[in-house]
């Protein structure tokens, strides 16, 4: 029964990958792989298919969001667990759960009507890499915080008691005992959040400006791979359509590489622990 379910899930995934490859193959065979990385820019209706600015856009937006959300999220979890009075931490946890449940399009809409005009007043045009990073960071922060909180909660009580018995200060206990003990869970949370950030479409589509260009500052607009597919899907035919499937393939490749790297880092860091 369980094995059958897993089999079906795997088969669907495999079919999707095959479909993606099949749809891309037409164009890949016609113009080759390298053109997607060496063309002058992205104008699929004029036969120019450079995906590099969008790959960079995806990586920069996600990286920025993760860098911003990780310290905030872990700090939130620490506050919740070790500093706040119980009623406040319950309230705070509920708030985080609520934030995690809000659909991304709501974050995007808020970004478009509040955040983008605000950034525009500071440094036009407003819809930018920065707007994307901020909205995404807000979106993935609850994931980081909740997973971190859960991994702090799963540390055996004895650790805390022993540390207290040693007469350590609260911060020394957290830094020297709790964080190292929860490290694996923290990393998992960050990877989960990173995955969500890379795959996010609607929110970044609404606030990033979607211009296909390598950004020089955080105030420049960017287009992510996911936004590229969503933006042009409805109107694409022929080679243009195939190019969007290649976009999906590149996105999948990028995510696979990231997962592989994360896995490898995980194994290296925790080789001594396990």
């Amino acid at each position: 029964m369980l094995r059958g379910m897993a089999g079906i899930a795997a088969a669907i995934l495999l079919l999707m990958v095959l479909f993606l490859c099949g749809e891309s193959l037409l164009l890949l065979r016609e113009i080759g792989v390298s053109r997607f990385f060496t063309d002058s820019d992205w104008h699929p209706t004029s036969d120019r298919f450079n995906l590099v600015p969008m790959l960079l856009g995806t990586l920069l937006v996600s990286l920025g969001a993760v860098l911003l959300a990780t310290p905030c999220g872990i700090a939130s979890a620490l506050f919740c667990r070790y500093y706040s009075p119980p009623f406040l931490s319950t309230l705070y946890r509920r708030l985080l759960e609520l934030l995690a449940g809000i659909p991304s399009v709501v974050y995007g809409f808020w970004g478009l009507v509040v955040l983008v005009p605000l950034i525009n007043r500071w440094h036009p045009p407003g819809s930018s890499l920065l707007a994307g990073i901020l909205v995404l960071a807000l979106m993935i922060l609850p994931t980081v915080a909740l997973v971190a909180e859960a991994s702090f909660a799963s540390i055996p009580e004895a650790y805390w008691q022993s540390a207290t018995a040693l007469g350590l200060s609260r911060w020394s206990m957290i830094r020297g005992v709790m964080i190292p003990a929860a490290k694996s869970g923290l990393v998992t949370g960050v990877i989960l959040a990173g995955g969500r950030a890379i795959g996010e479409t609607m929110a970044v589509l609404m606030v990033c400006g979607n211009v296909v260009r390598v950004p020089h500052t955080v105030f420049d607009p960017v287009r992510t791979l996911t936004a590229n597919i969503a933006l042009e899907m409805a109107y694409a035919t022929g080679n243009h359509r195939s190019a969007l499937f290649v976009t999906g393939l590149v996105l999948m490749g990028a995510i696979s590489i990231l997962i592989f790297v994360a896995e490898w880092l995980d194994r290296r860091w925790f080789a001594g622990v396990r």
């Binding site: 104008h43 589509l205 607009p221 933006l231």
Partner: peptide, 11 residues
């Protein structure tokens, strides 16, 4: 198409 230099692209 290629001559247009946009700051924001929308759907």
């Amino acid at each position: 198409n290629t001559a247009i230099k946009a700051d924001t692209i929308i759907g």
